[in-house]
Structures are given as structure tokens and as C-alpha cells.
Design a protein around this nucleic acid. Structure first.
Length: 628
RNA sequence: GCCAGCGUAGCUCAGUGGUAGAGCAGCUGAUUCGUAAUCAGCAGGUCAAGGGUUCAACCCCCUUCGCUGGCUCCA
């Protein structure tokens, strides 16, 4: 065999072997990128190629590891449950899954058995072998193996695909693009996590399959760290903390998806709402209020009856149908239309903390993150087409500023026209363009989400994460040419003619409920001082300082510090412990020393203590208020 | 809405075909104490709801409601 020269991780190397494996000896390497394409280590080497090794602990490597783990899981399932028909089994951001069609459900005991079998298969260190097969041949192969889902997938491949790749390890063969780790022995740390239902091809009209979720990591230490993370995340779950901190509750008697704010949750919400009112007022928004039930006719004009009816609640008043509002826009349009508007008046920005009601499917309700009634920090901006980009840009500025106040990281997506929608193609094109241009102008990264827009217009969505990394939409900016048309809104231009304004729907926090939910998880209940429902607990050491403690509490209350007083006949350690469990930022301890000096001993959440005067403490509390 | 699992005291959880237990919280009393739990006593549950099987059901079966994890959908 002649010598071949390639570059390996940037360095020129010559070799006389024939596959990547001959060249790469490092056991941590699971695959390679050859001229940019991910391939197996069993791939042949040709001269002049640029080869970059992919280690198990790299992003690509972990993905390959997990994908391979899903194949091993499928093999284990087929061995233990021959009636299970494999469908698809990809890697995900934090693990992998494989969907099976099987009449009997998998139990958690089954999961343990499958995991045990996987360990056995990994112990055999069976190589993953790639095979190419003609399309027709592959179809016949899977037909013969009794795997109709694979046959369907091959059948649905584009016409120009003539050959497909198969991966075989041990007794299992899967239709798969690869690449995979060289052998099952490379899987050193994995765990099966849960079983769930999933529709074939993600379509609810299709058969429901059984999905087994698992995860895999390069080394056991990483797996343990991930499992610990999941445990820790459970402690941050907003539903658990909501109960423990007495922020909110749900009641089976009241109905699912309906939040009840308890006194401390009510405070938190008030703080957020006051913050919002202030920040919007400062930016030229007018605060307005609209009713919750509107004549059915309004929803017909808006297009909700045709496009959103199944999500709405209706009621009848004096023989007439009224729709309970799922959105706040209609009242705002009526305010706009209440008089003739000049081009000089625009933009007009109407802000409402509007309580909306949507009939969410029963299975999707989730604590504060998905409810049937929620309050949006909603605004509708009516502007001239030439003002559109500037308005969108300043909304994005506001989003950036508000997210910074709370310390959230976020991602953005642009969603385009869905199937069920209203308006002309030209308007959709123009509106989508405006959103894209605004983000481009600011140089912000975004993904495109095809067909995911609102029925009346495209949108920019901003997403933030909960404790276990699930993404939730908060801010959204929606560009709308349709509703101004449908409600025949206009302004008088400088030419004295009537013109159609453009309408922007936008929220910043999104749903106040959802935002509070994510906020709780983000801070694990230990809110920054300015958001804490209880900022300080005043506690005396013995009855001898009860009066002094009360006078301190009085001073704090007068300064609008949100405080509680704990004069119970308990040891100071006990009172401290309770305040800590409640995640109160400041404990104000007063004993004889403080009483004598006219001071307070301040204990922070981290255990730090310092003695100061009451007015100094008040200033400390106030210093946490955000500057907006 | 679909698939699977779950529902026992305010909370966290034991429990068995022969009619229910712990810890914390609560209440009462004692203790007056310096930065994460003082001690003792008391009280608290139609075992989610409805129906069925059984001599007997919290336990087995069915239905409904709710919750959890996913899927679909969505702020």
C-alpha cells in the first residue's frame, strides 16, 4: 500500500494504513470530521484529506455517543421484547430516546431490565458496522425483518436517493445515517430515565408509540453530575417552592390551570406590575384597560371565530353570544378608532396588564408555566409603515433591558406564516421582512421557525429556560397588517388622504404567571431583595427586647420595607432557620446589645453578619431597587 | 386531547383484603435562650370522588376528577 499524506488535527501526517482507525489510536476519539463531514473511524482514508478527530467529550462526540446508546437500547428492547417494532431513535440535547410500537406498555421494571441487557451488550463490545444497501434491497430487508416503520421511512425518502446506510451491532440492524462509535464498549455511562407516549412522526392523527428516554455521557462522573443536576432542579421546581413559600396555589375545586395568588405571591405580582407600569410609562406607552367579555361579532371581525374558536370560552348574555377574551387587542383597536388620527399622532402605544383566558388542552397545563387564565403585559402599537422598523427595534431594546434587570439569558426565533392564517401574501412578506431586518440591524442571532406565526402575522419570540432547561416563551413581537384592515382603521397622512396604520402586538414578560414561574426557578425562590415578598424579618432574642424589636419593625414599615416580625418565645437559631427556609434576604436580629446601642444586627442569606443603624439598613434594602 | 404512572393528616411519606401510622407543621404547657431545629403533652384522616366484586375494600375491578412525565398544541 502506498504512503498517503493527510492533515490530522492540523498537522500533516503520512500513513500506510487504510482506515481512520489505523491513523487514530486515542481511545477517547469516537469519530472524525473528514473535510468537514462527520464519519465513522472505520472509514477509509484518501490522500489530501483534512481530518479532525472527534473526542467523546466534544459536542459532536456526545451526540454520537448518545445516538449509539439509542441503538444499543433498541437492540436490548428487541431481544427482550421481540414484538416491539423500532421506529426512530435520535440523540437529543440532553440524552436520547427511541420510539417503539408495541401493544403492551413498558413498565419501570421493564426499563431496569432493558438497562441491564444494555450493560451486557456493552460488555460484549460489539463493533458498529456500516453497510450500504440499495434502496429496494433495504426495503425488502426490513420488510422481511418485520419492521414496517423502517420500510415506510425508506419509502418516503426523496426520489433521487438510491442507496441507504445501515448500521449493525450485535443482533441489531438499523437504518441510519451515522456515524457511530466504533463499538458498544465505548458506552461507559448511560441511564434510562422514563417512558412516554409519542405520536408517530409527531402527528396526533398517527398512532401513539412508546418512547423510552435515556441519557449517556463520556464518563460516569458526568452522568452522576447530570443526575445530581436533575435532583437539584426538583428542589427548584416552582410548584414545590410556590407551596413552600406560600406564593400561589391551585384548587381541584376551582378548576385546573387557574392560579390563586396567596398574600406573598400577590406582593410579588404587585412588585412586577408596578415595575412594568413605570417602565412602560417612561417609554411613551399609555396604560389602558379593556373588558374581559366582548360581543361575538367582534371576534368574527377579528378572525378569531374562524381561527381560534377552539381555544376560546363563550358565554351568553341577554340572548347574545359573548367571547371571553384570549387576547387584548380588540379594545385597543377601538380606542384607536375612537377618533380621527393624524400621521402626527403616531406611533400610539397602548399598554394593558390584561387578563386573558384560553382553553388549553387538559394535558398541557403545568403549574404557572401553562395556565388557562393569565395576565399579559400586553401592548399594541399603531404606527406608520415608515416607523415600523424603529418601533420593533425599540421593543427589542426594551426586551434586552428588562431581561438584564432579571438576569435572564434568552434566545430569539422568528416565526413565519402558518397554514391557518389571514391576510395577503404581500403583507406577510413585508411584515416578516420588517422583523428580520430589525434583528439584523441590531446584529442579534435568531432561528427561523417556519409556519409557526400567529394567525394574523409573523412574530419574533424570546425564550427563557426553567430549572431543567425547558424553554418557555416570554416576550413576543408580532407584526400585524390584517387587524387594521379588518377593523378598517386609518390615519390621515400629510397628503390629507386616509392611510392604513400597521399594528404591533407585543409582550415583554409575556404571561406574568409564566414569568413568575420561571423567576422562581431561576432564583430557586431566593429572589433579589427588590423582588422578595418579605425583605426582612425582625426577631428578638428574648422577651426583654420585644418592645425595641417592635419599634424597629415600625421604622421599617414606615420606610416601606416589606417586613415581618417574629416575637415568638423561640430560640434565635430556630427563628433564623425559619427565615432561611423562607429565603428571606435579611434577618434583623435584636438582643440586649442592639437595644442598648440603638442598632440592629443584620444577617444575610449567606450567613454574613454586620451591625448597623436602622436608617443604614433601610438604605441597604432600598439600594437593591433596579434603576429603570 | 393522546400514552404511561400516581392520588393516605396542612406538608413529606410508611402501610395491609379483617375497618390507618411516622416526622415536620398546628394547639397547650414548661423553657427566656446571641445567628439553621429546646422539651413534654394534645389534637388531626368518609385513605380523591362515585359505582362494583366480597362476609369484609384504603387495598381488587370499572367510571369520573385531579396531579406528574412525555407527545400534540401554545404566552
Amino acid at each position: 500500500m502506498p504512503d498517503i499524506t493527510v492533515t490530522l488535527d492540523g498537522k500533516p501526517v503520512s500513513l500506510d494504513g487504510s482506515t481512520l482507525r489505523d491513523l487514530i489510536t486515542d481511545a477517547r476519539v469516537v469519530a472524525a470530521r473528514v473535510d468537514g463531514a462527520l464519519v465513522d473511524l472505520s472509514s477509509p482514508v484518501a490522500g489530501g484529506q483534512s481530518i479532525v478527530t472527534v473526542k467523546a467529550d466534544s459536542a459532536d462526540g456526545v451526540q454520537i455517543l448518545r445516538h449509539s446508546a439509542s441503538h444499543v437500547m433498541a437492540e436490548a428492547v428487541k431481544i427482550l421484547f421481540p414484538d416491539a417494532r423500532p421506529t426512530i431513535g435520535p440523540a437529543t440535547d440532553d440524552g436520547f430516546y427511541y420510539d417503539f410500537d408495541r401493544d403492551e406498555p413498558f413498565s419501570s421494571e421493564d426499563l431496569a431490565k432493558i438497562e441491564e441487557k444494555m450493560n451486557e451488550l456493552v460488555g460484549q463490545d460489539a463493533p458498529f458496522v456500516r453497510k450500504e444497501m440499495g434502496r429496494t434491497e433495504a426495503k425488502a430487508f426490513f420488510e422481511q425483518r418485520g419492521e414496517p416503520y423502517k420500510v415506510e421511512i425508506i419509502g418516503d425518502l426523496p426520489d433521487d436517493v438510491e442507496t441507504v446506510s445501515l448500521y449493525e451491532q450485535g443482533s441489531f440492524v438499523d437504518l441510519c445515517r451515522g456515524p457511530h462509535v466504533p463499538a458498544t464498549g465505548y458506552l461507559k455511562a448511560f441511564k434510562l430515565l422514563s417512558v412516554a407516549g409519542a405520536y408517530w412522526r409527531g402527528d396526533e392523527r398517527n398512532r401513539m408509540l412508546q418512547r423510552i428516554y435515556g441519557t449517556a455521557f463520556p464518563v460516569p462522573k458526568d452522568l452522576r453530575a447530570y443526575l445530581t443536576f436533575l435532583e437539584e432542579a426538583k428542589k427548584r421546581d416552582h410548584r414545590k417552592l410556590g407551596r413552600e413559600l406560600e406564593l400561589f396555589m391551585f384548587s381541584e375545586d376551582l378548576g385546573p390551570g387557574m392560579v390563586i395568588y396567596m398574600p406573598k405571591g400577590g406582593r410579588l405580582r404587585t412588585i412586577l406590575e408596578d415595575f412594568e407600569k413605570k417602565i412602560h410609562f417612561k417609554r411613551g406607552y399609555d396604560i389602558v384597560y379593556g373588558p374581559s367579555i366582548l360581543r361575538g361579532r367582534m371576534w368574527e371581525i377579528s378572525g378569531h371565530m374562524d381561527n381560534y374558536k377552539e381555544n376560546m370560552y363563550f358565554t351568553e348574555v341577554d340572548g347574545q353570544v359573548y367571547g371571553i377574551k384570549p387576547m387584548n387587542c380588540l379594545s385597543h383597536i377601538l380606542i384607536y378608532k375612537s377618533k380621527v388620527r393624524s400621521y402626527r399622532d403616531l406611533p400610539l402605544r397602548y399598554f394593558e396588564l390584561g387578563n386573558v383566558t384560553r382553553h388549553e388542552k387538559s394535558g398541557v397545563i403545568h403549574g404557572l408555566l401553562r395556565t388557562r387564565q393569565f395576565t399579559q403585559d400586553d401592548a399594541h402599537i399603531f404606527c406608520r409603515p415608515d416607523q415600523l422598523i424603529e418601533e420593533i427595534t425599540s421593543i427589542i431594546d426594551l426586551v434586552e433591558e428588562v431581561m438584564a434587570v432579571f438576569g435572564f439569558e434568552y434566545t430569539m426565533e422568528i416565526s413565519t406564516r402558518p397554514e391557518k392564517s389571514i391576510g395577503s401574501d404581500a403583507d406577510w412578506e413585508m411584515a416578516t421582512r420588517a422583523l428580520i431586518d430589525s434583528l439584523d440591524k441590531k446584529g442579534l442571532p435568531y432561528d427561523i421557525n417556519e409556519g409557526d406565526g400567529a394567525f394574523y402575522g409573523p412574530k419574533i419570540d424570546v425564550k427563557i429556560k426553567d430549572a431543567i432547561g425547558r424553554q418557555w416563551q416570554c416576550a413576543t413581537i408580532q407584526c400585524d397588517f390584517s387587524l387594521p384592515e379588518r377593523f378598517d382603521t386609518h390615519y390621515i397622512g400629510s397628503d390629507g388622504e386616509k392611510h392604513r396604520p400597521v399594528m404591533l402586538h407585543r409582550v415583554i414578560l409575556g404571561s406574568i404567571e409564566r414569568f413568575i414561574g420561571v423567576l422562581i426557578e431561576h432564583f430557586a425562590g431566593a429572589f433579589p431583595v427588590w423582588l422578595s415578598p418579605v425583605q426582612a424579618v425582625v426577631m428578638n432574642i428574648t422577651d426583654a427586647q420585644a418592645e425595641y424589636a417592635a419599634s424597629v419593625a415600625e421604622a421599617l414599615k414606615a420606610a416601606e420595607v416589606r417586613m415581618e416580625i417574629d416575637l415568638r418565645n423561640e430560640k434565635i437559631g430556630f427563628k433564623i432557620r425559619e427565615a432561611r427556609v423562607q429565603k428571606v434576604p435579611y434577618m434583623v436580629v435584636v438582643g440586649d446589645r442592639e437595644k442598648e446601642d440603638g442598632t440592629v444586627s443584620i444577617r444575610e442569606r449567606d450567613g454574613q453578619q454586620q451591625t448597623m443603624r436602622v436608617d443604614e439598613f433601610i438604605a441597604l434594602v432600598k439600594s437593591s431597587d433596579p434603576v429603570i
